[in-house]
Amino acid sequence: MDKIQNMKNEYQQMVKKTSPNSNLLRDSVRAFWVGGTICAIGQLITNIVKSFGYSKDEASMIATIILVFLGILLTGLDIYDSIGKYAGAGTIVPITGFANSMVSPAIEYKKEGYVFGVGARMFLIAGPVIVYGTITSVIVGIIHYFI
């Protein structure tokens, strides 16, 4: 038994050595500038909306809606996945990434119908984000209440 385990360990070391790693620095730089650009666009929209006399909260809400719309539009036009491939976390973390994660399964599973296809599978990737995001917000809310 030990012999087999040793063989497995030895092989896993071999695999680690042979498998190429992603270029962390390059990927980080790309994520930073693309993600930063998306945020800057969000800020720009907020500022423009504010100049029309909306409050800060209203303006951020409108900016969010516009960014989500853009994320969905670019997903539908088969562009977002290419940007995502280039930028990685830079396009996953902003709210546009959330929109992409909802719409891409909706497109993919349309063939399975609107109920069990689009409706159910839409949350395939975003579901965990919503679940754990909600739980986290409750915990933070409780902490906030006592501080």
Binding site: N21, D27, D81, G84, K85, G97, S104, I107
Partner: peptide
């Protein structure tokens, strides 16, 4: 991709392996 990985339009990076 649909069965084993992610929807095609999801913006992800594939590892080099």
């Amino acid at each position: 991709e649909k069965q084993f990985r992610f929807p095609l339009e999801l913006g992800t990076q594939r590892p080099l392996t």
